[in-house]
Write a protein that binds this DNA or RNA. Structure first.
Lengths: 336, 336
DNA sequence: CTGAAAGCGCTAACAG
DNA sequence: CTGTTAGCGCTTTCAG
C-alpha cells in the first residue's frame, strides 16, 4: 500500500488539499470542525508529508551538513554528537561529510549538497584559503566554522589555541622542566600553527633557549610520531617533557616512549590537547588541555540554525560572531 | 543570482527541457549537434539538477541511512567510513543516525527518513525484537543488518561472535589460565550473549568449573567495569585472566587493574574484542580478537546498493543472504 | 474560513 | 531525433 498523500487526506476528510496544508502548517485559521476532521484523517491514514515535495516547493530541506576531515579522528564524533543533538531537537537532519582534508572532495560535497537544497553548513575542517567557503556565505548560504581560521567574516566557534599551549608550557616550566619538545601537526593547519606559537611564546617568556630540534614535525599521520620520538630521545636534544599537539599524538608518543624503556612521567612528562575521554584510560592517565568538543558542536548547530531561520524570515544573514570557548588544563599522571 | 534550472539550459541551448533531460540522463538518442550545444549551455550556466525535483519525480533520493547506537563508540566510526566510502563511490549520500539504543528514537528516524524517500537502511544497532525492521523489508524497503541478530530473512553482515570468544578463551587456557573472567555487555544485546556463550563453551570444553562470579555484568556503561574489576579482584574468585566483551571494556578494566596495583600481564592477562586501532597504543598493547569493521561497513553498503538497484529494475528485492566475516586473534602484550 | 489553480524542477509518455 | 504535456506532492496566492 503506497504512502498516503495530501490528496488522500483531503478526500477522506471531505475538504480540499489546500485546507489540509493550512491546518497542518497552521499559518492560517481553520474552523474547529474541519480541523478535527482533517486531523482524524491524518491519523487514520498515518499521513506524513513528502519531504521532497516540501523541499522542492520551499527551496529548503531542513537538512544541514557537517563537514569534517575524518570521523576516525576521535575528536569529531564528539563534535558530531553535539551538532546532531541540537539539530534533531530543532527538527533538522544532519548529513555527515568526511573530506580527509581533501579540498576537492570538500568542494564536491558542497556542490552536491547545494543541489539538495541544503539549509546550511558547519565546517569543522581545517584547511585554509578556502575562498569557496567565503563565497558560500556571500551567496547567502548560512555557514558556521568550528576551529577554523577566519577573519571574523563568518560565524565561528573556536578555542584559543595559542592560550592552550601557552598554559600547558607554562605549567611544564613551573614544575621544573627546561627542555620541552612539541609535537606539531601539519604546518598547513592553522590550529597547529597557533598551538606552536603558544608553546614558543611561553618558552621565550621564561627565557628558555629554544632548539628547533624540539619540534617534531608530523609527516604521514599521527603514527609518524612513533619514530620521531625515538630519534628525538636518542639525540642530544632529549627533552624532559613533550607537549603533544593533540591527544592522539600523545598516545603514539607514549607508546614510543614505553617501547624505548622510558618511564612516564619520571623520565619524561607528556601532555596532550583535547582531553578526549580515552585520555583518562591511558597508562599513565594523560594530562591534557581540555577542549569542550560537545559544546562546540552544539553551539555551532545553534548558531547555524539561528542563521537559517533569520534568513528564512528576513532574507538576510545575521552579522557573523566568533565565539571563543574556554579550555582547561587537566593534570593527571603523565606529568611530573 | 539564482541557481540555473533545466529551462534556463534549454532556452540557452535553443532546445526544449525534455531534450536537455534526455541528453543528461542518456536513455535516449540525441543528435551530436544538439548534444554539444546542450553540454555547452550546462557548462556555461554551471547547471546542476535539483535533487528535490528528481526525488519527487522518481520517488527515490539516492540517499541511504546508517543507523548506529552511538558515534562515540569507537567501533562505529570505522564501520561508518566503510559505508560512506562505497556509498559515495556509487553516487549515494549517507545520513548518519544515532539512536543511543533507544527503540523509539530508531522508529522516529525510520519514519522521518521514509518521508525523505530514503532508498534503504543499514542498521548497525543491536537491539532485538525489532519487528518494525522486518516490516520495513516486507514493505519492500531495502535493509541490511550489521552485527544484528536476524533469522536469515534479512541481508546481514556479521562475525561469528561465539567463535570469537571461543577462540580467545581457548588461547587463554592454552597458556595456562584456569580462572578466567568475562566482561559482559548488556544482556539484551545478542552480540554479547553469543560472546558469553563462546566463553562458557570453551571453559566447559576444557573441563574448567565455571563460577558465576566470573561474569562481570555491565550496568550503566563501560565505566561500570572499573569498580566491577576492583571487586572481583578483591574477592575469592580473583581470576588470572579477563576476557572483555569489547576493547573499550578492556581499556577500563586495564585502568582499574593498574590503579589497584596489579601488573598486566604478570598478575592478570587481559584480552579484548574488536581490535580497534587504539588497542595497539595501550600500555601494555592489548591482545584482541580483530573484527573487520571497515569491511563490514563497505560490504553492507555494497549489499544495500545492490538491493536498491535490483529493486529499481525489477520492483523486487533479492533474496537475503547473511555474510559471516572472519575474525583473527591478535596477540600483543596484555596476555601471558 | 475554504476551494481552485498555479507552479517549484524534473522526467516520461506521446506525438510528430 | 525532438517538442509538448502532464504530473510527482506540496504550498500559496486569489477568489469567494
Amino acid at each position: 500500500m503506497a504512502r498516503a498523500n495530501i490528496k488522500d487526506v483531503a478526500s477522506l476528510a471531505g475538504v480540499s488539499p489546500g485546507t489540509v496544508s493550512r491546518t497542518l502548517n497552521g499559518n492560517s485559521y481553520v474552523s474547529k470542525d474541519t480541523r478535527a476532521k482533517i486531523l482524524a484523517a491524518v491519523k487514520e491514514l498515518n499521513y506524513q508529508p513528502n519531504a521532497a515535495a516540501k523541499t522542492l516547493k520551499a527551496g529548503r530541506s531542513h537538512t544541514l551538513a557537517l563537514v569534517i576531515p575524518s570521523i576516525q579522528n576521535p575528536i569529531f564524533p564528539i563534535v558530531t554528537q553535539g551538532v546532531e543533538d541540537v539539530a534533531n531537537m530543532q527538527g533538522y537532519t544532519t548529513i555527515l561529510c568526511n573530506t580527509n582534508e581533501d579540498t576537492n572532495r570538500e568542494k564536491q560535497y558542497i556542490s552536491n549538497l547545494l543541489t539538495r537544497s541544503i539549509d546550511g553548513f558547519i565546517f569543522a575542517t581545517i584547511t585554509e584559503k578556502a575562498d569557496y567557503i567565503y563565497e558560500l556565505r556571500e551567496k547567502g548560504v548560512p555557514v558556521v566554522l568550528v576551529n577554523r581560521r577566519n577573519d571574523d567574516e563568518i560565524d565561528a566557534v573556536q578555542i584559543d589555541n595559542f592560550q592552550a599551549t601557552f598554559d600547558a608550557t607554562n605549567y611544564l616550566v613551573s614544575t621544573g622542566h627546561k627542555t620541552i619538545a612539541f609535537a606539531m601537526g601539519h604546518e598547513s593547519i592553522n590550529v597547529y600553527r597557533d598551538r606552536r606559537e603558544g608553546y614558543l611564546t611561553a618558552l621565550k617568556h621564561h627565557g628558555i633557549r629554544f632548539h628547533p630540534e624540539w619540534i617534531m614535525q608530523e609527516t604521514y599521520g599521527p603514527e609518524s610520531f612513533y619514530s620521531l620520538t625515538k630519534s628525538l630521545m636518542a639525540s642530544e636534544y632529549r627533552p624532559t617533557a613533550i607537549l603533544a599537539g593533540s591527544d592522539i599524538k600523545a598516545f603514539t608518543i607514549m607508546r614510543s616512549l614505553h617501547d624505548s624503556g622510558y618511564k612516564i612521567p619520571e623520565d619524561v612528562s607528556v601532555i596532550g590537547i583535547d582531553n578526549i575521554p580515552l585520555s583518562a584510560l591511558m597508562e599513565p592517565p594523560l594530562s591534557s588541555v581540555s577542549q569542550p568538543l560537545y559544546q562546540m558542536g552544539s553551539l555551532a548547530a545553534k548558531k547555524l540554525i539561528s542563521q537559517i531561520e533569520h534568513k528564512e524570515e528576513t532574507g538576510q544573514l545575521l552579522p557573523p560572531v566568533v565565539d571563543i570557548m574556554t579550555t582547561e588544563l587537566i593534570i593527571r599522571k603523565s606529568t611530573l
